[in-house]
Structures are given as C-alpha cells and as structure tokens.
C-alpha cells in the first residue's frame, strides 16, 4: 500500500481551491445559521448562481473578470431578495423548505434544455478560465514544495482563493463584534424580543441573508475556477456537505468553517484514498471500488448525526454560545 500517495493526496486538499470554496460557503452559512439562526438550505443555489453568473457573463457576454464577478454577486442579491421577501416573516422551518426548493429551482433552470444555448443544460459550461488566468502576475513555472507544488495558474488560484477567505473571515469577525452583530445574535435568540426593542428585524434578517448568500456566491466562483460548471454539482447534497463542515467546526464561529473545511476535505481524501487502495489490494473483498466511493457519503451522513448529537458546538464552538442549544 502506497501510504505516501494517500497522505500526499490528502495533504493537497489542505489548501486546495475546493477547500477554500467550501470554507467560504460555510462561512456564509455561519452568518445565516450560526449567527442569525436562519435555516438556509439553499446555499448550493447561491453557489450555482456565482458559478453560472461568472461563466455566462464571460462566455456569452464577454465581460471582464470584475464584471462577471459583479454579475454573480448581483444575481445572488436578487435571489436573496426573492427568497427573503416571502419567507423571512415565517417560522424557521418554512425558510428551510423554501430555500431548499429555491435552490432546486435554480439547478433545474440551469439543467433544462430550454436554455441550453446559454447554460449548456446538463453538460454545463467550460472554457471561461482564460480571463482569470490572464490576470496572473506569476511567471510560468512551478511554485511550492512537496504535495503543495503547483503550476503558475493553480498557485495564482490558491493565492486569490485563500486571500478572499481570509478577508471574508476578518470581515465577519469584525462585524459580529459590532452592534450590528449584536442585533443579529439577538434575532437568533428571540426575534420578537428584538422587535420589541425597536429593531427592524425583517431588514436585519434580509441583510444577513444577502451577506451570507454573497459569500456563498463568491465561493461558487472559486469552486468553478478549477473545473467546469456542471449543474449536477449543485445538488442539495452540496448544501448538506457545507452544513457538515459548519457543524464540524462550530456554527457560531469564524474559524470553525475554515478549519472545518480543511479537516473535512483532508479526512475525506485520506479516507477515499485508503479505501480505494485497500480494495485494490484485496483487503476488503466484500467491496468494489465504487462501493468504496459511496462509503464516504455514508460516513459524512453518520458524521453529521454524531456531531449534532454528541458535540453540537463543533470543534471551535463555545459550549454555551451556540444557536441550537436551547
């Protein structure tokens, strides 16, 4: 068994753009769920809007990178408004169902053949990376060391992705310490009480929904840059994975989503690598390699259950400060 390759592949995930994208999406979810108490199950929809908004702007309209970025962000702001207007006045569980439904609507609209000329329907889109690569100040060549060695494009992508994650984390940290953050946390605890103190709860929830959604959208763009945009990537399962990361790290924390994402991806990659090679080596005669792949989803599901039951505050959460210990 090639342990070196297994550990190497797992280490790659530590700073991969995908890990950064999940960390950012989870940070957005922390704003929604951990701080405001909004049960957004449509984070995959926000991510899809980011990915498609960026790709379509470049491919169909020939926008520059910053223009495509703004289109994605604008789309998610509109999406948040459409979602928020009917549901933010309702009980928390209604929001959960409506957001999950809205994210599915977004995915189905990107999948349908009706708009295939723009969205590429089930095949998705590719070929939008040149504009971003053109901004790369790094010379050709390879950077980094060991498992973290990458070519210029991949290094550039990692630098941008993780800079965005760090900036966003600082932003969230600062704003949650402000009086605005205090109102937001108050709403999580009891929105009627906050309303009775003269705060426009509806507007605050909307701001939170938009803010966390925009983080999810930017995450969607980072997620799209190392691969193609394919609608089947934005299924509800994506949202569940991000919840798993958030719960792992701690819902009402800033570091939790980031470290959670790193742990999640490193473990998942390690596990997949291990199982795949164990099956190859004939250690697991009752299992095919495909079943090995499915085993990791089973494991994520079980992990979500166990974390919620036995360590609801996550790794970084303070036992007391947690949205759902009530």
């Amino acid at each position: 068994m090639d342990w070196g390759a297994i550990f190497g592949n797992a280490a790659v995930e530590l700073i991969s753009p995908t890990t950064a994208a999940y960390a950012l999406a989870a940070l957005g979810l922390a704003v929604h769920f951990g701080y405001t108490g909004l049960l957004n199950f449509g984070q995959a929809g926000f991510m899809a809007l980011g990915a498609y908004g960026y790709a379509i702007s470049i491919l169909t309209f020939g926008f520059p990178v910053w223009g495509a970025f703004l289109v994605g962000v604008g789309a998610s702001v509109i999406f948040a408004l459409i979602l928020g207007i009917p549901t933010l006045r309702l009980r928390a569980d209604y929001l959960a169902i409506v957001t999950i439904a809205a994210a599915e609507i977004v995915r189905l609209l990107f999948t349908t053949n009706t708009f295939a000329s723009v969205t590429g329907s089930a095949n998705g889109l590719s070929g939008y990376k040149n504009e971003f690569a053109a901004l790369n100040p790094l010379a050709e060549g390879s950077y980094g060391f060991g498992p973290f060695e990458n070519n210029a494009y991949d290094t550039w992508l990692r630098i941008v992705a993780w800079s965005i994650v760090i900036l966003a984390a600082l932003f969230v940290w600062q704003i949650m310490r402000s009086p605005w953050g205090r109102v937001i946390k108050g709403i999580r605890e009891d929105e009627d009480a906050v309303r009775a103190l003269g705060k426009n709860v509806y507007a605050y929830k909307m701001q939170s929904l938009i803010f966390g959604g925009v983080l999810g959208t930017i995450a969607g763009m980072i997620f799209a840059l190392p691969r193609a945009v394919v609608p089947s990537n934005y299924q509800t399962t994506l949202t569940f994975f991000i919840y798993a990361i958030l719960l792992l790290g701690g819902a009402a924390t800033v570091l939790g989503p980031i470290i959670g994402s790193m742990i999640f991806w490193v473990l998942l990659s390690f596990f997949s690598g291990f199982i795949a090679r164990a099956v190859e080596a004939g250690w697991l005669p009752f299992m095919t390699s495909i079943q090995g792949g499915q085993l990791r989803f089973i494991l994520v599901g079980v992990a979500i259950m166990l974390i919620v039951i036995f360590r609801p505050q996550g790794i970084f959460g303070n036992k007391k400060e947690l949205a759902f210990v009530r």
């Binding site: 049960l39 569980d93 959960a96 399962t237 994520v300 599901g301 979500i304 259950m305 919620v308 039951i309």
Partner: peptide, 20 residues
C-alpha cells in the same frame, strides 16, 4: 434535543441511508 438539531440529524440520516 431541540427541533433544529433533530432536523439536521434527519438530514444526516437521509444522506447515510441513501448511499447505503
């Protein structure tokens, strides 16, 4: 356990069973 964690447990269960 409050209802929202319960709901998240059911999501985990759903994921695990589906791939099972």
């Amino acid at each position: 356990v409050a209802v929202i964690p319960l709901m998240i447990v059911s999501i985990g269960l759903s994921l695990a069973l589906r791939y099972l």
